[in-house]
Design a protein around this nucleic acid. Structure first.
Length: 419
RNA sequence: GUGAAUGUAGCUCAGUUGGUUAGAGCACCAGGCUGUGGCCCUGGGGGUCGGGGGUUCGAGUCCCCUCAUUCACCCCA
């Protein structure tokens, strides 16, 4: 095989498209039920959108972008995420003239990573963003929206984890305290954490190495450093979640890799998925718009990975059963009857039936086998004897009952059958 | 980017210490039943053994490189 799909991509075959339709339809419906409206942004953007929005020092920008130069010498990149792109779109248009603006998207994202279960180089996110909203109600609203979607799809036992990473006022104070504490215990940290200490010290908090956990346990707690405004915000989010009956876990070690997050961060996960068990991740990003050179605008939102969501549905046995792609299979005997069989198929299609017609001129036995394989409930059989009398045999594949029906009454017969 | 495992028919897999024409089940096609699916029987089509190089009289089997998949790390959806 010399032609293969690029690494980390997948072909979604006809057997799988129904679950995608179902998930996407649910996402549209739930988002709209919260008053969110769909936005679509370009597949590629100028690199600067993500350099400034996501952050230069993040893994995404540093080593995961599909970057290229176009024929006009522009530095472009396949979007690695959508929030920065949406922020760019808002700046460029008049949408934000009348806040709040509630948006959602279902878009592909591209990151050059080593693939594994639940991680692809092209993946799809259902994302939701509320712009121009400052209060904790908005944070709770997007979490509730994600919950609604997961519930609607039949999922239970997903864990919501919640934390606050502070704002531009209090985060630096905590960061400083943490770095100074960790530096004193540098020798006790794992190699990864020694590097994290330089680049992204907050990451040390959720290291899984026992030794690091022990060090962290004795160090400064992020929540102790929250400023009053951030603390009030967090308890506001919790109060709203409680009012909605949404159960969550406070997780002081939950942090986010992207620069633009502030205050609220949250994840919704499903343990059975293995290492990539986070289905939904989000938070607040009040500083993003300014980082992109625009007027400051508070915002909160999340990204929900559809591939991971579908893996979860699969693991929970929630995939829809296979359904027949057709209502009627039109079989005929002998090439000369092809045109008349086509006419019959056409008539049925115009009457709203989904029809597959024999295309290979095989034996009746083979045609029936094919119809069975397709789970077609009915087969219309046209042979020379029938044609002579202007009728057709209609076979019910489930009961094996057969009846002759005049060709001109066929459409009506099926209409009554399915009505 | 790091570590490990795996690549043989459309699918799931056998294939002995290296030995002649590489197999099975399922799926597909045909026939048994010259116009009727499911069960059964018989036959048939399908393979660059992931790719390239090497060792050898001889490589699916051993060695090197490469590509891909899977799992984990980093990180993330």
């Amino acid at each position: 095989m010399d032609l293969q799909r690029p690494r980390g991509t997948q072909d979604i075959l006809p057997a799988e498209t129904p679950i995608w339709h179902r998930v996407e339809a649910a996402a549209h419906r739930v988002a709209q039920s919260y008053g969110y409206r769909e936005i679509r942004t370009p597949v590629f953007e100028h690199v600067e959108v993500f350099r400034r929005g996501v952050g230069d020092a993040t893994d995404i920008v540093e080593k995961e972008m599909y970057e290229f130069e176009d024929r006009g010498g522009r530095r472009l990149v396949l979007r690695p995420e959508s929030t920065a792109a949406v922020a760019r779109a808002l700046q460029q248009t008049s949408l934000l003239a009348e806040p709040p603006v509630r948006l959602y998207y279902i878009q592909s994202h591209f990151r050059y990573e080593r693939p594994q279960s639940g991680r692809l180089r092209q993946h799809t996110q259902f994302g939701v963003e509320a712009w121009g909203v400052l209060g904790p109600i908005a944070d709770a609203e997007v979490i509730a929206l994600a919950e609604s979607l997961l519930t609607e799809l039949g999922l239970k036992r997903l864990v919501v984890r919640l934390n606050s990473i502070g704002c531009t006022d209090c985060r630096p104070r905590y960061r400083e305290a943490l770095v100074s504490y960790l530096s004193d215990h540098r020798e006790e940290l794992c190699g990864d954490c020694q590097r994290r200490l330089e680049r992204n010290p907050l990451r040390v908090l959720d290291c899984k190495v026992p030794g690091c956990q022990a060090v962290v346990a004795g160090g400064p707690k992020p929540l102790d450093y929250l400023c009053e405004a951030c603390e009030t915000h967090l308890s506001g989010v919790e109060a709203a979640l409680e009012a909605l009956g949404i159960t969550y876990e406070r997780d002081g070690s939950l942090v986010r890799g992207l620069d633009y997050y502030s205050r609220t961060v949250f994840e919704i996960g499903y343990e059975k998925l293995g290492a990539q068990s986070t289905v939904c991740g989000g938070g607040r990003y009040d500083g993003l718009m300014e980082a992109l050179g625009g007027k400051p605008q508070p915002a909160v939102g999340f990204g929900l990975g559809l591939e991971r969501l579908i893996l979860t549905l699969e693991a929970e046995g929630l995939l829809p059963p296979g359904e027949s792609p057709v209502d009627v299979y039109v079989a005929y005997l002998g090439e000369p009857l092809g045109p008349e069989a086509m006419r019959i198929a056409h008539m049925l299609r115009e009457a709203g039936q989904r029809v597959e017609m024999e295309a290979l001129g095989r034996s009746l036995k083979a045609q029936l086998r094919r119809a069975q394989k397709l789970l077609a409930p009915f087969v219309v059989i046209l042979g020379p004897q029938e044609l002579e009398r202007g009728v057709v045999v209609v076979r019910n594949m489930k009961t094996s009952a057969q009846a002759e029906v005049p060709i001109e009454q066929l459409a009506e017969a099926f209409h009554n059958q399915t009505a």
